[in-house]
Design a protein around this nucleic acid. Structure first.
Length: 766
DNA sequence: GGTAATACTTAGGATAAACGTC
DNA sequence: GACGTTTATCCTAAGTATTACC
């Protein structure tokens, strides 16, 4: 157990102090063209190989170079590769020389503190109270009423109802205020009745049922199909578009696309060159030939009037009367009721995204080469419907046809279509509260728990592998060490030019790390600096073991900054290896495992039994935060952050004054009582005492809130809470300390984690 | 065996709704 | 009840991993 892997309070504190520089969204700018040269080189290489290798087909050429990189099955391919790389390098050097003047240096960042997963203690295995959904437990039958003929949303076992009722009651209490409010709002009777009574009360406990055999996702599926985006409504006559200072009436198609841009006018996107270029190119495709010949420059286009019109509309929407708002709400509810649910195997389940994505401009994240491109309108003819053969097949809108109707129960999606920006498939799937998602989620945490049992062995093995004679094995071992220690993502290969230039572990390049034999009094420090998923910057200085350090030096030998650090490795090689170590093990399981185990340990460490509830919740949030830091879950500081902190501070100040006053009053009441010695003054003292206590508590609450908020400035807790932390840990913690679960999970989260809330007891161990 | 296609999870920002305060 | 702030929900991009295909 190495000390550097231990989290402690002060370390976490340090993390927060340092994270002024944690969020780096803006900093991308100075990196934006860092890889341009690299890309250009590769582009050139492609060209080169095209010419020298005429039998290659276009499509294979595009990948040629990358593929070469990943070929390392045997010595010959390695040789080939090296040769190839040498050529590349020379070329790059030249290019580099030419371009180095334009290379912008990255701003130096403060260290964001090294947060690494804590070490694993040997803990008793607790596999067992509930049948865990392991892959190996594959029941052949599911003891449900699977008669495919009758699929009304089902009633649930009666014994569940009590508990469900209880839960419901709690929820109701929790949202008492809301309900009262909604009553005030004169919700129509029908609405008032339907929700609380029927379905909600009878929550189905799918986790108490046996699962389908591997591969089968459902036996019956019926739904109403997707909801399409509303058709385009042309602008009113008085809303003008100007070109080169003159009013210009646009054709409907061109106007629609123009409105997409106008709606984003205040956004930084519209100032970016790539965005503008892509937009203009796609916009022109929608223009009439006349428009095309007139509108030749985007900078001469004036969308401000259109933009103002949309702003006014937004404003008007805000100003709508209660009745109007209510009407919209009801319409949405109707839509939800009709299209928002499906029937899957006797149960009515909520659909996550039943609305088709409307057309608009593509907003890629980070430095995305396709930002600004037109996302076209999806028509029924683009849609593939997936449902049961014997279900009522959804009808396409009048005058339209579906692209296809299929009946594939090996998948979970209900609807799919291919989007035009990346050519990827989009799906309509079920809500996280559904059985099909919940089971998978549960299974994910069970896999992570299995990793817990063999992680020591795996760690020993990769440490051994650092000494391997085979380069490939060494690289794999070092990469795995990073994935384990730093919770890095796997790092699949990406197609160049199609997406922002981001990397994960296996795709790290030499330029993404710096080696410091000694730094700030620590030996063998690796400095990471790269853009990860969503172009979120990962910056960390990590002391590593000597052998890792030496290996990294070796991997970087004779390489250019743009070369892959792990040139003999990719995610599929790594995952194949992991599969051999443990069934179901992949790189991402380490993230889940380390996140959950960190939460559990942090909770143990930080929870003070004597604390009151708000203080305990602060501890919980701090534990959660440790995980968020580990996983590098960042957010842009809220725009109103400073202001809200100031508000809170003034509240605290006011409370302090109030407390001082109350204390003074108590003091004089005491003095008074001493003199008078009567019942009345005694009572006054008591009540003043209570007042002081009450105010002290309020003050403490506010102070805790301020601490929490400050520490959370740039850290997003939600992602880890929703995706990485075994909810049973949180549930057990709540039960152990008598914290209402509502303080930790909101309604949606409670729905998603219903299985965990129901099954975890206070002694649950991850 | 490599690549492309597919399916699904994870992610942060935008927006809407709820809430608190005056 | 208006308004500002906070929180929840929605949205969809961007990952991972597996599967299908040549």
């Amino acid at each position: 157990m190495s000390g550097d892997q231990l989290h402690n309070d002060s370390q976490i504190e340090a993390d927060f102090r340092a994270n002024d520089s944690h969020k780096h969204k803006d900093k991308h700018k100075d990196r934006e063209h860092r890889h341009k040269e690299h890309k250009k080189d590769k582009e050139k290489d492609r060209e080169k190989s095209k010419h020298s290798n005429s039998e290659h087909k276009d499509s294979s050429e595009k990948k040629h170079k990358d593929k070469e990189k990943t070929k390392h099955k045997d010595g010959s391919s390695e040789k080939h590769k090296d040769k190839h790389k040498d050529k590349d390098k020379e070329k790059r050097k030249e290019e580099k020389m030419k371009s180095s003047s334009g290379d912008i240096k990255i701003k130096k960042e403060k260290e964001n503190g090294f947060s690494s997963p804590p070490r694993i203690k040997d803990e008793p295995d607790d596999d067992g109270f509930y049948a865990s959904p392991k892959e190996d437990s594959k029941p052949l039958k599911r003891p449900r009423e699977d008669d495919d003929a009758d699929y009304k949303p089902k009633k649930i076992k009666t014994e569940d109802i009590k508990k469900a009722k209880k839960r419901k009651q709690e929820e109701e209490e929790d949202s008492k205020a809301k309900k009262i409010k909604s009553k005030d709002k004169k919700v129509p009777d029908a609405d008032k009745r339907k929700k609380p009574k029927k379905e909600e009360e009878q929550k189905w406990k799918w986790w108490e049922e046996e699962r389908y055999p591997e591969g089968i996702k459902w036996k019956f599926l019926e739904h109403k199909g997707p909801v399409f985006a509303p058709p385009y409504e042309p602008l009113p006559e008085n809303v003008k578009f100007y070109y080169d200072g003159k009013v210009m009436k646009l054709s409907t198609k061109a106007e629609e696309v123009a409105t997409f841009f106008a709606k984003m006018l205040d956004h930084e996107y519209t100032t970016k060159e790539i965005f503008r270029k892509n937009f203009f190119k796609d916009w022109r495709k929608e223009m009439t030939s006349e428009e095309k010949s007139t509108i030749t420059s985007l900078s001469k286009c004036d969308f401000t009037h259109m933009s103002q019109y949309f702003k006014a509309q937004t404003e008007a929407r805000k100003q709508m009367s209660k009745e109007e708002k209510q009407k919209i709400k009801e319409e949405n509810e109707r839509l939800l009721k009709e299209y928002g649910y499906c029937v899957m195997d006797n149960h009515k389940e909520r659909i996550a995204n039943f609305k088709i994505e409307p057309p608009g401009l593509f907003r890629g994240r980070g430095n995305h080469p396709k930002m600004g491109m037109l996302k076209r309108r999806i028509m029924p003819e683009d849609i593939i419907i997936n449902c049961s053969k014997d279900s009522k097949i959804p009808a396409p809108p009048p005058g339209h046809k579906w692209k296809e109707v299929r009946h594939d129960n090996k998948v979970t999606w209900l609807v799919s279509w291919t989007e035009n920006i990346q050519g990827s498939i989009k799906y309509i799937m079920l809500n996280p509260s559904s059985r099909i998602k919940g089971e998978k989620d549960w299974q994910k945490y069970e896999t992570a728990r299995r990793l817990k049992k063999c992680v020591d062995k795996i760690r020993n093995q990769y440490r051994e592998d650092w000494k391997s004679k085979e380069m490939k094995v060494r690289q794999r071992a070092v990469a795995l060490y990073f994935i384990d220690k730093l919770a890095l993502r796997a790092g699949n290969e990406k197609e160049e030019g199609e997406t922002a230039d981001t990397v994960g572990c296996c795709s790290l390049r030499v330029e993404h790390i710096k080696l410091h034999p000694e730094l700030d009094g620590q030996e063998y420090v690796v400095e990471f600096d790269f853009l990860g998923k969503d172009s979120i910057r990962y910056y960390n200085k990590v002391p590593v073991e000597k052998r890792v350090f030496k290996n990294l030096q070796l991997f970087m030998e004779n390489k250019q900054p743009e070369d892959d650090l792990f040139d003999r490795l990719n995610t599929s090689i790594l995952n194949k290896h992991l599969q051999d170590l443990m069934e179901g093990l992949t790189a991402k399981v380490f993230r889940t495992y380390n996140a959950s185990i960190t939460l559990q340990q942090q909770l143990k460490e930080l929870t003070n039994p004597d604390d009151n509830i708000p203080a305990k919740i602060l501890s919980y949030n701090r534990a959660n935060r440790a995980v968020a830091i580990l996983c590098n879950h960042q957010r842009a500081p809220p725009k109103t952050f400073e202001k809200s902190m100031m508000n809170l501070q003034s509240k605290i100040d006011a409370k302090k004054e109030q407390l001082a006053d109350a204390r003074r009053e108590l003091k004089s009441a005491k003095a008074d009582a001493k003199v008078r010695r009567d019942e009345k003054s005694k009572k006054t003292v008591e009540s003043k005492k209570k007042a002081v206590q009450r105010i002290e508590e309020q003050l403490m609450k506010l102070e805790v809130q301020a601490t929490d908020r400050e520490e959370n400035k740039q850290i997003a807790l939600g992602t880890s809470k929703l995706n990485y932390l075994d909810p049973r840990i949180s549930v057990a913690w709540c039960k152990k300390w008598g914290i209402p679960i509502e303080k930790i999970y909101n309604k949606t989260q409670r729905e998603k984690f219903a299985w965990a809330i129901d099954m975890a007891e206070e002694d649950y161990e991850f």
